[in-house]
Amino acid sequence: MVEKYIASIVPLNADKIGTKAHGSASFTVDGNNLDIKIEMNDTPKNTQHWEHFHGFPDGKDAKIATIAQDTNEDGFVDLPETEPVSGTTMVPFNDAPEEMNIPNDGYPVSDDNGHFEYERVVPLDILEKKFKEAFDDTELNLDKRVIYIHGVPDSLELPNTIGGSVGDYDAHVTLPIAVGKIEKVN
Results as ranks from 00 to 15, higher is better:
Asp105Arg: 14
Pro123Ile: 03
Gly151His: 07
Thr28Val: 15
Leu12Glu: 01
Asp125His: 11
Asn113Leu: 14
Val173Gln: 12
Ser155Arg: 05
Trp50Ala: 10
Val179Leu: 00
Leu156Asp: 09
Gln48Thr: 10
Leu158Lys: 11
Ala21Ile: 03
Ile126Ala: 11
Ile38Lys: 07
Ile17Pro: 02
Gly31Leu: 06
Asn72Arg: 04
Thr71Arg: 08
Ser26His: 08
Ile67Glu: 15
Lys132Leu: 05
Pro44Asn: 09
Glu133Cys: 04
Glu139Asp: 15
Gly59Asn: 06
Thr28Ala: 08
Thr174Ile: 03
His150Tyr: 04
Asp154Phe: 10
Gly23Thr: 06
Val85Thr: 15
Ile64Gly: 00
His52Ala: 14
Thr161Ile: 09
Ser26Met: 11
Ala14Pro: 03
Gly31Ala: 09
Met100Trp: 04
Thr82Cys: 14
Gly180Glu: 01
Asp136Ile: 03
Lys16Ser: 10
Pro57Ala: 14
Ala21Phe: 00
Asp70Cys: 03
Ser24Phe: 07
Leu142His: 06
Phe135Thr: 03
Asp168Lys: 14
Asp42Ile: 03
Asn72Val: 03
Glu81Met: 05
Thr138Leu: 00
His172Arg: 04
Asp105Gln: 13
Asn33Tyr: 00
Gly18His: 10
Val166Gly: 00
Ala178Trp: 01
Asn33Asp: 14
Ala178Tyr: 01
Thr43Glu: 12
Lys132Arg: 13
Gly151Pro: 12
Leu158Ser: 12
Ala14Gly: 05
Ala14Thr: 03
Glu119Gln: 13
Val10Asp: 01
Gly151Met: 12
His54Gly: 07
Tyr107Leu: 04
Phe76Met: 08
Asn101Asp: 13
Asn101Met: 13
Asp154Ile: 08
Ile9Phe: 02
Val173Asn: 11
Ile149Asp: 05
Glu99Ala: 11
Ser24Gln: 15
Leu12Asn: 01
Leu175Ile: 12
Thr88His: 01
Ala171Pro: 03
